[in-house]
Design a protein around this nucleic acid. Structure first.
Lengths: 173, 173
DNA sequence: TCCATATAGTTTAAACTTAAAATAATATAA
DNA sequence: TTATATTATTTTAAGTTTAAACTATATGGA
């Protein structure tokens, strides 16, 4: 009973960051809880991806984008869709190309452009991972009432919309 | 109107990862939305911390923990509370010590132990940042109904509990 | 005492991250 | 048709991240 203690200990960020939780504004409390929950699940997914497939989460995300687009995507578009910076995409694609899962092509029209797409091996690999990924999430959320899952989905949508409208550089219409 | 486009473009992970959103299991849809929302807000907080205080998010989190404990915390405890690995804490504390915000002490009893605590300058600095931080969150969630914020808090609690109970290494009682 | 084992931190290697600067290619405009 | 601006990607520097290996302590028995 002393083994898992150190590495898995839940570390309730929210219970601690600004105190025993009471004296925070509701927005702060919600944020701390969102953050700690996301961290918890992200770690778990990351651990399983690595253990079962030797892949990283950003690699999985990037391949997920490419899977949707059999013709491939420009690196810039890939960057936007993954919420990963430009420079980062360069390195990710390089490593995935070295592994044989992704292929880079420069189209004739515009030599500034690089299009990345999954190779057949990459497609197969991703499909396997995606199926497992979906199962992991069902497992992780197994104790949550289905109705709660649905309502959370829409309520978090409201948070996301609000956040989008209050970004520093927000100049959207 | 062409400026912010590239860097701020919202990049709807969820709308893309596994498709136009329809053909995913509810758990996957919720997860993608949680993840993209958290990324969005995290980026915003990170941007503001850097712009206004020249601080990073992990530094802020670490100082938040120490702020709660005037006597300081062992690095291992700090690691658990911040959900940051041991090795990472070492580097974070080193940099914060170099900035004069944190101080390291090895207690007499056990020479393996290092206790970190905020310096007066660190305390003052953190208080300023924390106040701003709370304001940013109110701003970011300004368009969300207060009742939704409350119900989200408890519903996400259910997700967190479920996730905690389904970790790979989960051996909690 | 001596040794196995457990603890606390640090270090390391590889990958990822951001932000900003640098390259390169293309488009636009005077 | 040049100069100028834009667009696409890469590079760079500093920091963060994970996982695993390593270094000291400490502790609990043979």
């Amino acid at each position: 009973m002393e083994t898992a203690e150190v590495e898995t200990a839940s570390a309730d960020l929210e219970m601690i960051v600004h105190g025993p939780s009471g004296r925070n504004k509701p927005e702060t409390r919600l944020w701390l809880r969102m953050l700690s929950t996301t961290k918890l699940i992200t770690s778990e997914i990351r651990r399983r991806l690595r253990a079962e497939f030797g892949a990283t989460l950003p690699q999985f995300d990037l391949m997920a984008q490419l899977y949707r687009e059999p013709d491939g995507l420009r690196l810039g578009e890939l960057s936007r869709r993954t919420m990963v910076t430009n420079g980062n995409v360069t390195g990710l694609v390089e490593r995935l190309e070295a592994d044989g899962f992704v292929q880079r092509v420069t189209p004739d029209g515009d030599r500034r452009v690089t299009v990345a797409r999954l190779t057949p091996a990459g497609t197969e690999f991703f499909e396997t991972m995606a199926a497992a990924h979906e199962g992991w999430l069902r497992d992780i959320m197994a104790d949550v009432d289905p109705a709660t899952i649905t309502s959370l989905w829409s309520e978090i949508g409201a948070v996301k919309t609000s956040a989008s409208n209050h970004l520093s550089g927000a100049a959207f219409e």
